[in-house]
């Protein structure tokens, strides 16, 4: 579904990605693991067209997206949930939820979204940033399920959240996988990643240095500890 080849990205003079290669198959949950500053978030932003300069190849459903603007990339069916969640302070919960454009049929409808995230219905008219961190993360995920995009990029959805919320997000990711969504997940917490993902790519110094199927995660613990320095 997504093929990234030789992806290089720059922020101004800083060369962040040095040839990233990986694939995501339809229906998979794939994580990018790696230390802070390894280039995981930059990889996601590059896929979305949100970095100033990039080279290489990013093919989505066979279509090269490198020359497209972010809004055009979104309309090919890729949706992005940023690390900082990107909840808009001047919009209420409903407005935040309805903001992303519908890009294809087959997105979740509002009743389904409210079943998955009951809190959001209660807080519909609250200002977006008045929600708790967990609720904001739920909102950030919920609003991209509506759009009909089938590839979801989730950047560290569990960061800074209480364990019970992390579990809820894990359940949500497994649920949306069952509904046929494909997920690319950036994580630092590989224990969490192990509960949701099919495969893991390890990113270091702007390159993908290893791929570990989830089934082999236990066996690869020693290697993984070395990569992540935990």
């Amino acid at each position: 579904m997504l093929e990234v080849r030789g992806l290089n990205s720059w922020y101004g003079e800083s060369h962040i990605l040095h040839g990233v290669d990986f694939d995501v198959q339809e229906g998979e949950v794939v994580t990018l693991l790696g230390r802070n500053g390894a280039g995981k978030t930059t990889t996601m932003k590059s896929i979305m067209g949100l970095v100033p300069r990039r080279q290489g190849s990013i093919r989505f459903k066979g279509q090269e997206t490198l020359s497209l603007r972010p809004d055009e990339i979104a309309r090919t069916g890729i949706a992005f949930c940023p690390e900082e969640r990107g909840i808009f302070a001047s919009l209420n919960v409903t407005e935040n939820l309805m903001l992303p454009r519908t890009v294809a049929p087959g997105g979740l409808d509002l009743p389904t979204i409210y079943t998955l995230f009951p809190n959001l219905k209660e807080r519909a008219s609250s200002q977006g940033t008045k929600l708790s961190g967990g609720e904001q993360q739920m909102l950030a995920i919920a609003r991209i399920l509506r759009t009909g995009a089938k590839l979801l990029l989730l950047d560290e959805p569990t960061e800074g959240l209480a364990p019970v919320i992390v579990q809820q997000i894990g359940r949500t990711i497994r649920e949306i996988k069952q509904r046929g969504f494909t997920v690319l997940l950036v994580e630092q917490n590989f224990r969490f990643a192990a509960t949701v993902a099919d495969r893991h790519y390890v990113v270091e110094h702007g390159r993908v240095i290893d791929m570990i199927p989830n089934a082999q995660l236990e066996a690869s613990m020693g290697k993984l500890h070395g990569y992540l320095g935990v």
């Binding site: 979305m48 067209g49 949100l50 603007r69 972010p70 809004d71 990339i73 979104a74 309309r75 949706a79 992005f80 940023p82 990107g86 808009f88 302070a89 001047s90 919009l91 407005e95 935040n96 309805m98 903001l99 992303p100 454009r101 890009v103 991209i144 759009t147």
Partner: peptide, 25 residues
Amino acid sequence: TSVGATLRAATENAPLVQAFGVNVP
């Protein structure tokens, strides 16, 4: 209105609004 909501959101964080499929330019 929803147009206004898009406008307010783009005032806060235009790149993200564009990544949501809005033709920000």
